[in-house]
Design a protein around this nucleic acid. Structure first.
Length: 481
RNA sequence: GGGGUCGUCGGCUAGUCUGGUCUAGGCUACAUGGCUUGGGCCCAUGUGAUCGUGGGUUCAAAUCCCACCGACCCCA
């Protein structure tokens, strides 16, 4: 086996290097020429398109429409909500010139679109009949990452979607916040096959400018947590600043209640880390650009033409059955080379068809996750492929669930807390008194912070893991990406 | 925020310590032809490198010095 083409390190031995190699060698992404930026290559983009199409469809089912706002935001607008501005300004890129002319007012490259969107919302919303306003934007945002960039996880520009809604009441905004969080949870668990913890962020960790932030957190194999998506209830913080008011049925003027929410291409990073193995990527079938790769196995002095047309025919049949299938009939590569290549790229199911199969009217499936081979009757290929893909999807999810379980602990004392962190890491369930000083000290001390406060507390946890006072809150701590 | 490692054909690298046949070597990839094909076949020929960028030292710089740019890793 040629070392240079495949992954040269073991996932368990050098996780960081393994991750970088998978990203580059599976041709998902490449480094760009500007610091901190990343090129999303066609194969990676295809995954993003699938994520995008599923979520887009669900957003629309819930009544959202897409819109597009400019990438540049005048400083005066970005500044309007003081807390928000303070939170983002360290990582804002600024445009100061247009051609040879210095701009009168500098323009921020959007780090997120609340401000630019809401300066329009204030013009569009007049009456209770204009509500709710349910919009979503598919775009990219830029946040200057000075240090430690990592493909998909930490880059200065990233693709995402950001939803921005306006409602008449707090209750409606609460409901919207949760509706989207649940949609994200469903998508991440069912499509990406990654289990997540759901709950709220603490005051310290919430989105700057939000009333509260709900979040989904997953655990990675190295014991670090990854934020998968957030959904914020913005309250009336922005509506008051941007004067987004409506005349209610009560003939009174009211400020709207708002939400914003988003997931990014970071999800792809999570898929790589959670499911991949020493051979490379393993894509959950539901988001795999190629679900089944068909590989005809040619021999000298054998009916290769018939084999080639049979392979094409089977590929077409699979496609007609709603399977994303691709026939790799390149003659310049040997089957073994192709096997390795498609395994590196994470294609969940391989269909081999050679002279032996041709004679017996069978095809041979090989499963990416277990490596097992299954010989099936040619006529049932599509049906069996569907079943195998479904099972594979379930196995990936089950495996990720047991990893989450393995990397979840409960700490009764601060010593135990630190001991867990220094060994396996992962989520640590512990009590918290609710004092920000304790939260900050733990972060300072250990590098771990509160990733999520679950919606349901654990009544058996009674003491703050740091100060020992009464635990008002059950929290999940972890080091994070 | 703090510390560290590194930058040479598309990829991996030899050469750098000790400046000089380096006119920069190898593997891989790529191209062409042939041969093969159920786990990264084999043979031949060929393409491909402003040695990250800029400056300095020197008769002479991939090699020594300075600055910058970029990548990666670890710690908080």
């Amino acid at each position: 086996m040629s070392k240079e083409i495949g992954i040269t390190v073991k996932k368990a031995e050098d996780f960081s290097e393994w991750y970088n190699q998978v990203v580059l060698k599976a041709e998902l992404a490449d480094y760009a020429s500007a610091k901190g930026f990343m090129v999303l290559r066609p194969y990676g983009y295809q995954i993003w398109e699938i994520i995008q199409s599923v979520l887009d469809c669900e957003f629309k089912k819930l009544g959202h429409r897409n819109a597009y706002f400019p990438a540049l935001i005048p400083e005066s607008i970005l500044k309007r909500e003081a807390e928000h501005f303070k939170g983002f300004v360290p990582e804002v890129f600024w445009v100061t010139e247009a051609g040879d002319n210095r701009l009168g007012e500098r323009l921020a490259v959007r780090p997120t679109s609340e401000t630019i969107a809401y300066s329009s919302y204030s013009k569009w919303i007049r009456s209770w009949r204009d509500l709710p306003l349910l919009l979503n934007f598919w775009n990219s945002v830029m946040r200057a990452e000075i240090k430690s960039t990592k493909p998909f996880l930490r880059t200065s520009e990233f693709l995402w979607q950001e939803g921005h809604t306006a409602h008449a009441t707090k209750e409606e905004a609460d409901e919207e916040t949760m509706k989207i969080l649940n949609l994200y949870k469903w998508f991440i668990e069912e499509y990406l096959a990654i289990p997540v913890l759901a709950g709220c962020k603490t005051e310290r960790e919430k989105f700057v400018g939000a009333l509260y932030t709900t979040t989904l957190e997953a655990i990675m194999p190295d014991g670090k947590a990854l934020q998968m998506g957030t959904s914020h209830n913005l309250g009336q913080n922005f509506s008051k600043v941007f004067e987004i008011k409506y005349l209610g049925q009560d003939k009174q003027e009211h400020y709207v209640w708002q939400t914003s929410w988003g997931v990014s291409w970071r999800l792809i990073g999570a898929v790589i880390m959670v499911h991949g193995d020493d051979k490379g990527l393993i894509l959950p079938p539901k988001i795999a650009p190629i679900q089944v790769v068909v590989i005809p196995i040619f021999y000298k002095d054998k009916p290769n033409e018939k084999l080639a047309s049979k392979a094409k025919e089977i590929t077409t049949t699979l496609q007609q059955n709603g399977i994303r299938a691709f026939c790799d009939d390149r003659e310049e590569y040997t089957p073994g080379w192709k096997f390795n290549d498609w395994e590196l790229k994470g294609v969940p199911l391989r269909l081999e068809i050679g002279p032996r199969d041709l004679e017996k009217h069978t095809v041979t499936f090989a499963l990416r996750d277990t490596g097992k081979r299954v010989e099936v009757d040619e006529s049932s290929a599509a049906e069996r492929a569907k079943a195998l893909l479904e099972e594979l999807q379930k196995r990936l999810k089950a495996r990720a669930e047991s990893m989450l379980k393995e990397l979840s602990s409960t700490a009764d004392s601060y010593d135990e807390f630190k001991r867990i962190l220094s060994t396996k890491g992962g989520f640590i369930k512990a009590g918290w008194c609710g004092d920000q000083a304790c939260e900050a000290s733990i972060k300072e001390d250990t590098g771990a912070d509160i990733r999520v406060v679950p919606f349901e507390g654990d009544p058996s946890i009674q003491r703050c893991v740091y100060c020992g006072k009464e635990a008002k809150i059950t929290a999940y701590f972890a080091r994070a990406y």
